[in-house]
Design a protein around this nucleic acid. Structure first.
Lengths: 241, 241
DNA sequence: CAGTGGTCTAGACCACCAT
DNA sequence: TGGTGGTCTAGACCACTGC
């Protein structure tokens, strides 16, 4: 028998990690197809069944999508299967259709909490984006985002305004940053004066505060977001399994 | 070749559904072990691999738990793997430990929205439970529950008070109703007077409103719940995948 | 029709648990 | 030590896609 394996993680898990590393390195871009199961089995020296198991895990994590008859593809926010995977706010009645209004896009230095969340050195430069989401001419969401400048060099108001799709699709297409998962912390808060003005509600109005930390491949945090949701005619939907 | 199969769902899916039906029928109770893979394969006339696939799906849905070396067991809220699977409110700082205070337990007739949510006829009898959750002598959650009386006959304040564990463990042990999954709708609301008094906050204080519809085997709704969470020192945590 | 993923089987071997 | 689930393989056949 050949060399001793440390017998740490199962083979399908090692292969999964190797594929994630290749995705992080950009070997296959979002929307592109991966090699076939047989080709990957050859590459990793494993059986097709073991590679399939690794790909099934990646499918469950939404890192790839499989289409019978055509292949395995890197997930993309450009033409997503699930259009609003990361926006859980849904109208009480009909379908959702938001319009976006960009408020500002500036370069500034990370405050201590922002640097901590994003894993940056204190005062490292970040880009702050502020915007409003409207439905039927009424503001519903006030969003503030902070992004490490080193990952989003060249992000300006013009770049955002000239892009039609979702922000995460822009990040992916223009900066090669694909968002994989996120953690959110929800609270009920009283609307501060400035937010109240923008959302056209009285100061002190109860709002749903949603703090999100979003991660790219390899669990690297690359976006901190703070949303204030007006929940008079919308709600945040969550499924517990 | 023998009879034509309609070729509807794959075999592992059919087997999954048969096992769910057996769970719903109470063939194996929460905490008990299922037959081994080999025995189930024999029973359903399939290979071990196919039965394994069905059991893997049920594991992902938290309907069963598998323990290497000892067997496959029906999930239970009595000794859960994940202690707070359905309570997403976590303290900002340290660990969670709630004490419960029962406010009331009464029998009444379902209002229209309650009947609709639970799939009952109008004015069918339901049991209403109201309670407070405290941490460090401070009220944090005001909970109201509505349960179909036909499924929870004999549920009284005394029954609740005499039970040490979680409510869902009580429901399972005493009424044979195991909660499988739930949908929640979150909003920020202003504390109504009565809730404000109970939670010891000013009237109008922003609170996180959590409406939950919980389902048992076969997606049958059996509990409607309305929680008002004080989120000054706690937050609702959610992971987006 | 060739190539892809999806299903199903059979069997070997390993890791873990109970006794 | 026997029984359980966990991993890995090899191969057959099916269903779907795209040329």
């Amino acid at each position: 028998m050949p060399s001793r394996k440390p017998r740490s993680a199962p083979l399908y898990e090692q292969i999964r990690q190797l594929i994630v590393a290749a995705l992080a390195a950009g070997e296959w871009k979002p929307g592109e197809s991966l090699p076939s199961e047989a080709a990957l089995a050859e590459r990793f020296g494993a059986s097709a069944g073991t590679v399939r198991r690794a790909l099934d895990e990646l499918t469950a994590e939404h890192l790839v999508e499989r289409r019978q008859g055509s292949g395995t593809f890197v997930s993309t926010h450009a033409a997503p299967r699930q259009p609003f995977r990361f926006l859980r706010l849904v109208p009480d009645d009909d379908a959702q259709a938001f319009t976006r209004e960009l408020l500002s896009c500036r370069r500034l230095r990370a405050t201590a909490p922002i640097a901590l969340a994003l894993g940056l050195r204190p005062a490292e430069p970040v880009i702050e984006v502020r915007r409003l989401l409207h439905r039927r001419e009424r503001p519903v969401v006030l969003d503030e985002l902070w992004l490490p400048e080193k990952n989003f060099e060249g992000l300006t108001a013009e770049v955002i305004e000239s892009h039609a799709g979702a922000l995460y699709a822009l990040f992916e297409a223009r900066f090669g940053v694909h968002m994989v998962r996120a953690q959110e912390q929800l609270r009920a808060v009283a609307a501060p004066r400035q937010a109240a003005v923008l959302l056209r509600v009285p100061e002190g109005q109860p709002l749903l505060s949603v703090e999100r930390l979003a991660f790219t491949y390899g669990d690297r945090p690359v976006e901190l977001r703070r949303g204030l949701y007006l929940t008079d005619h919308d709600h945040y939907r969550n499924d517990l399994n």
